Amino acid sequence: MNRIVLKNPRVLAVLILCVLAAGAGVIFFVPAMMNTPQTVTDLHIDSEAALKLDAMKQISKKNGITEWELEAATATLVKEENQAILTRVHVVFYTKDKDTVILTSDQGILDTETHDMDFNGNVVVRHQTYTLKTDKLHYKKKPHIIHSNTKVWLENTDAAMEADTMEIRINDNQIILQGHVKGIFSENFNLP
């Protein structure tokens, strides 16, 4: 076994002094650095927002049954307006038969009291084999209905339809298209 033996007492004394000086520096400077106030620059305070979240997930239940699950990339809760302003929204609505209706949009607004919602920007709704696209869409919680007063485009592999307005009765699995309804149907299309 090799042993390191310091034969020069001066080298040993210098080493001990260095260790003691480093220890004293840590004991004195670290607490001083931690107690020094840090200055924050370029801080923007939004007087309208009560709370901003980087991610949000909310589940709505009625009589113990999940009606919908909402996820958003960001949420800004607005004071006194009972609203959450959402970005990159993803909502899964559940029918009474446990089917799912999936909605995505760029932005949304959730009424934090009624749980009604408005969606805009690349709104897409998917249910089984159907895909619906529109610019704006609204959800009413009490009747569990999605509706749009702007032009909608509904398609699946056998048909494509366009209408001025639309209503989806989630619990009844019904889509009602109204106003200048036009469609293209393949020969394989079957009406239920």
Rank of each mutant, 00 (worst) to 15 (best):
Glu80Trp: 07
Thr150Cys: 06
Leu132Ala: 01
Asn173Glu: 14
Glu80Ala: 10
Leu51Val: 02
Lys62Glu: 14
Ile146Trp: 01
Asp118Lys: 13
Thr165Phe: 03
Val101Phe: 11
Gln128Thr: 05
Tyr130Ser: 14
Ile175Met: 12
Gln38Asn: 11
Pro143Ala: 03
Ile102Asp: 14
Thr114Glu: 13
Ile170Trp: 05
Val123Cys: 04
Asp54Pro: 10
Lys52His: 08
Val92Asn: 13
Glu162Asn: 13
Arg126Ala: 11
Glu48Leu: 13
His138Met: 05
Pro143Glu: 02
Ala160Leu: 05
Tyr139Met: 00
Val101Ile: 14
Trp153Met: 08
Ile168Pro: 03
Asn171Asp: 15
Val181Gln: 10
Ile145Tyr: 08
Lys151Thr: 02
Leu86Thr: 01
Val123Gly: 00
Ala84Phe: 03
Tyr130Gln: 11
Ala163Gly: 10
Asp106Thr: 08
Ile109Glu: 02
Thr104Asn: 15
Asp172Lys: 12
Met56Tyr: 13
Thr134Trp: 01
Lys182Ile: 10
Gln107Met: 06
Leu110Arg: 06
Thr131Ser: 12
Val91Tyr: 00
Asp54Arg: 08
Thr150Val: 11
Asp135Phe: 01
Asp116Arg: 03
Ala84Val: 04
Asp172Thr: 02
Asn156His: 05
Ile168Ser: 03
Leu77Thr: 07
Val124Thr: 08
Ala73Met: 15
Val181Tyr: 05
Ser47Glu: 15
Asp135Lys: 06
Glu69Val: 07
Asp172Met: 08
Ile170Pro: 01
Arg169His: 07
